[in-house]
């Protein structure tokens, strides 16, 4: 489903600030696979996501989605196949527009936008049905401006907007990191729900190791632009935070630097 072949990307090449963000990344995700990605700050997790989504273009290497090479496609064309939720709860929705208008824009994602009304009676019923699954009461506030919602509600809405057209790939970039613990838990639950329901091929970046262990059926650990640890299936289910830390020490010969990565 998602196939990344030998992708490298260096920022500020040949300057003192040179940073090898990705170094020869190779990976293959099968349909329905849910991988969580961990690593300390600057390990290249977000860069990897951005290379898949098209907001960054790699120096070399190819990205295949459904066996189609998308590495030269601009971001907006790839988004037909990719659903995304960002870390900032404000980033995934348009605040001055209503809930139903936001949903209508997401609904049109994998279609050609036309000069027909975005919100119709039929679509409203459809939106309402999906919103009910969130259990946040948003289905009764279709005409409310999204800017009036709380961060948690907005993030839940973003998640719904990213998934309900069943994209080929779902990218979650620390999408619970900016929320308080109870809201983060709610979003985590909803994430597990929708990913399971639509069997979405998903890549989730997180700083929270427990979350990385709880969710998904595969796990990548990244460091210095490389995937240093890739585990799936039963082995992944039996992992603990201590295993992860030991594994990092074994591979890199030192401890993980970021406290945030450990405690977060």
């Amino acid at each position: 489903m998602l196939n990344i072949k030998d992708v490298s990307l260096t920022f500020n090449e040949d300057t003192p600030d040179e940073k090898k963000a990705l170094q020869g990344i190779d990976l293959e995700l099968n349909k329905g696979e849910f991988v969580t990605v961990i690593g300390s700050n600057g390990a290249g997790k977000s860069t990897l996501m951005n290379v898949v989504s098209g907001s960054l273009h790699p120096d070399v290497g190819d990205v295949f989605i459904n066996d189609q090479n998308v590495v030269h496609l601009p971001e907006y064309k790839r988004s037909k196949m990719i659903g995304r939720v960002f870390q900032d709860p404000m980033a995934g929705t348009a605040p001055t527009m209503t809930i139903e208008e936001n949903l209508a824009m997401a609904y049109a994602r994998n279609k050609k936008r036309r000069l027909v009304p975005g919100v119709t009676k039929k679509r409203k019923d459809y939106f309402r049905e999906y919103l009910e699954s969130l259990n946040l009461g948003l289905e009764d506030r279709l005409n409310a401006k999204v800017g009036l919602l709380s961060g948690g509600e907005r993030q839940a809405l973003s998640l719904l907007m990213a998934t309900f057209t069943e994209p080929h790939i779902l990218l979650l970039d620390e999408h619970t990191a900016a929320l308080d613990p109870s809201r983060a838990e709610l979003i985590t639950e909803i994430t597990a729900d929708v990913v399971g329901k639509f069997e979405l091929t998903t890549m989730m970046v997180t700083h929270n190791m427990q979350q990385a262990l709880d969710l998904g059926d595969r796990l990548f650990m990244m460091d210095k632009g490389e995937i240093i640890f890739d585990v799936k299936g039963e082995e992944k289910q039996n992992l603990t935070i201590k295993n992860l830390l030991d594994e990092f020490q074994r591979i890199r010969g030192k401890q993980i630097e970021s406290d945030r990565a450990v405690l977060g």
Binding site: S79, F86, L115
Partner: peptide
């Protein structure tokens, strides 16, 4: 209020978001 019109409004409101929705 059409699909294109909504996308134009979102462009003025949150460009990053509407780009991620293939506009």
């Amino acid at each position: 209020k059409t699909e294109i019109g909504l996308a134009i409004r979102a462009t003025g409101d949150n460009q990053k978001m509407i780009r991620s929705l293939s506009a």
